[in-house]
Computed example of a mutant assay.
Amino acid sequence: MENMINKLESVIKEEYNNKYAEWLNLSHEELIEKSDEISAARFVKDNIQDSFTEEEAEYLLQFKEPLEILVDRITVLNAPNNIAVKEQFSDMVSEMYDKQDEYSDYELNEDSGMQMQ
């Protein structure tokens, strides 16, 4: 029996290469609009070996375009209108505020009037 993860990797890489060729023909504006999709596709392509079990890979291989399905799911999960994403973002900002000293390497706006605590 062929390793399903390797087979999935091969299928996804081929799908990625086809999409990549399409992206090369897009305008700058279109590329910016598709940046989340492109980033998600690259993430999937680069993390197949560490992310799937044999059974999960076999399941995804049932689909004609498994990369598209995974990218769609990632972009929905990370969409700004997703309440969980909003909560995570808010928590991240609160943590940054609580740990201000960790960000002391970043240049401050000269006229901000705010001092690092």
Rank of each mutant, 00 (worst) to 15 (best):
M1K: 09
M1C: 12
E2S: 15
E2C: 03
N3S: 10
M4D: 04
N6E: 14
N6A: 13
K7T: 09
E9K: 14
E9S: 14
I12M: 08
K13P: 08
E14Q: 06
E14D: 15
E15V: 03
K19P: 10
A21K: 11
E22M: 08
W23R: 05
L24Q: 14
N25F: 06
N25Y: 06
N25L: 15
N25C: 01
L26E: 12
L26N: 07
S27T: 09
S27I: 04
H28I: 11
H28E: 13
E30A: 04
L31H: 11
I32V: 15
I32K: 12
E33G: 01
K34L: 05
S35A: 14
I38V: 03
S39L: 00
A40V: 07
A41P: 10
F43P: 01
K45I: 02
K45A: 09
D46V: 08
D46R: 06
N47Q: 12
F52P: 03
T53P: 06
E56P: 03
A57W: 11
A57T: 09
A57P: 03
Y59S: 03
Y59I: 00
L60H: 07
L61I: 04
Q62W: 02
F63K: 04
F63W: 11
F63I: 00
K64M: 10
P66Y: 05
L67T: 01
E68F: 10
I69P: 03
I69T: 03
I69C: 04
I69V: 08
L70N: 02
L70G: 03
V71M: 06
V71L: 03
V71Y: 05
D72G: 12
R73T: 13
R73K: 14
V76I: 13
N78H: 07
N82C: 08
I83H: 13
I83C: 09
A84H: 12
V85L: 01
E87C: 00
E87W: 11
E87L: 10
M92W: 02
E95T: 04
M96K: 12
Y97M: 15
Y97S: 07
D98Q: 14
K99M: 00
Q100P: 07
E102H: 15
Y103W: 12
Y103V: 01
D105I: 12
Y106V: 07
Y106S: 03
E107Q: 12
L108V: 04
N109P: 04
E110K: 10
S112H: 02
S112N: 05
M116I: 15
M116G: 05
Q117N: 14
